[in-house]
Design a protein around this nucleic acid. Structure first.
Lengths: 190, 190
DNA sequence: AGGATTGATGTCAGCTTCTGACATCGACTG
DNA sequence: CAGTCGATGTCAGAAGCTGACATCAATCCT
């Protein structure tokens, strides 16, 4: 992060990072698959936190509630890291190559969540839909947490975003029904 | 594609592609920003087709219907390209680096669609939601079109996927409402 | 017609990312 | 105390990608 701030991402070489860390370029690539990966290595632990939360949830709770509930595990994970997260996101937002990495990380997070839900007995479109919905909520909540003027609670942002999105979807259902009548004529129903 | 099939993606060098094309490596990079981009250059035209369809839609139609309707522009676009598309997707599916590129292309497609809907007067969470929904539908439909044993009509797949997803969401609404009561307590309602 | 402009391509040099192969060194183990 | 193992270093090199400049043909302008 020091170097990224001093010179920008593109102008920072892996050799430079390694030198600043007192290591060799070769060693850098033993710890990070990519130059980009250095900004995303925390994701594994976040994913682990989500999955643990799914494990810990009561059986019998709806997959959607489990998935969204698991997002609250992100609270402690990001506690006291607001400033770092803002900096990191600034770098990512300025570099398409990093956005690509972020997208695939989010997708793999959703996939892992869906797998965990399936492991708890959730059926198949439900698990994937719940997981993707949860990740959408998390994305919105996280962005708002970063943008908030003062420091806010990420968990509160998650709950607010979830409530808002669900309300939006509810408002939408009539409209969606209308679109279905117009476009698909029930072809895919069972 | 010839080279990718012969040697695989990783083993195919840009120098090799250029040579096969009777050009120079430098010239390759004037036409494609990336080695990866050679598999995604058609996307701009697909996006243009979508946007044209949005333009052409009657005003007064709901954003969701416009967005999903625009997907039918993909029909002529992919006509007679099934075999190529299958090959291409096989390469992408086998290489995370290419999946990253695909994800960002889809995201930018959704962003462009949302912008077009906004340009037609759609409001803001509605435009983005409609656009992202449409892209989800397209993803599912496209995958099924590729997987279908015989050649099928992409437009039919789009209509079927849309009908199916909308039906799923409708079935979901009760569950979502329950989750909202559990998690958000109506905090985001208006 | 003839010079100027433009766009596509070639040439070359060089940096950066990333990898394989092998060596070293310290910590831990039996 | 020898052996093993994990982390690191060293070295060489392939491949991706870029900037600077040259060439050449088509086209435009006068």
């Amino acid at each position: 992060m020091e170097l990224f701030r001093e010179r920008g991402y593109d102008e920072t070489t892996v050799a430079g990072i390694a030198e600043r860390a007192g290591l060799t370029e070769r060693t850098f690539f033993r710890h990070f698959a990519d130059k980009r990966e250095v900004l995303f290595s925390g994701q594994e632990q976040l994913q682990a936190a989500f999955l643990d939360a799914v494990e810990a949830a009561d059986l019998g709770v709806e997959p959607l509630a489990v998935a969204v509930g698991a997002l609250e595990a992100a609270g402690p994970f990001f506690a006291d890291r607001l400033e770092f997260a803002r900096l990191r996101q600034g770098v990512i937002d300025a570099h398409p190559a990093l956005q690509e990495r972020e997208l695939i990380k989010m997708a793999s997070l959703a996939a892992a969540l869906a797998a965990a839900l399936r492991g708890r007995g959730a059926g198949e479109p439900a698990a994937s839909l719940a997981a993707e919905h949860a990740i959408s909520v998390f994305r919105v909540a996280f962005a708002r947490w970063l943008e908030a003027p003062g420091p806010s609670d990420l968990v509160d942002q998650v709950r607010a975003a979830q409530a808002e999105i669900v309300a939006m979807l509810r408002d939408w259902s009539a409209e969606a029904e209308e679109a279905s009548a117009l476009g698909g004529e029930g072809r895919g129903r069972r």
